[in-house]
Amino acid sequence: MTEPLVFYLLAFLVIASALAVVTVRNIFHCALFLIFCLFSIAGIYVMLFAEFVAVVQVLLYVGAVAILMIFAIMLTSRLAGHDVQMSNEQVFIGGFLSLIMVYGLVWSLSNTFFRISDEAPAVNTPLAIGKSLMTDFVLPFELVSVILLAAMIGAIVIARREGN
């Protein structure tokens, strides 16, 4: 009984903060709203019995990515300066298109048959995830580490100052 309530609350938070991310003029405020949105999504994950993923989301997304974005904002814009124009001339067509996209997605999803299972969700998820990562998915695991390495090196190379 409380489940729908929690869901709708979290959903409302997610959508509202998302809308704020895409419409607010001040870029720093966008970042803050993004953090809020990410937290809400973590809550959704918990509702879906994916606690580990929720924690990972908070740690990585909020703790790393969002902070990184704030750093970048700090480095690239003048907080106290005048705000640049927020959106380009494609606003209306873009909005229209996204509305169509929503409608289309929902319609096609609702016409699709998903075989919903009756099983109970798994309980000991971190252990199970860890086990899977090390046995079934060891290859993607390693590849992802390589990607991270490449991203790190790439970022250093791209952003270094001349003459270093």
Binding site: V22, S77, M86, N88, G94
Partner: peptide, 18 residues
């Protein structure tokens, strides 16, 4: 789906790269 569309709107519309 809604979240995706909002994101799409943002990508297409916003001028600030970040």
């Amino acid at each position: 789906a809604i979240l995706f569309s909002i994101g799409f709107f943002g990508v297409v519309t916003r001028r600030n790269a970040i």
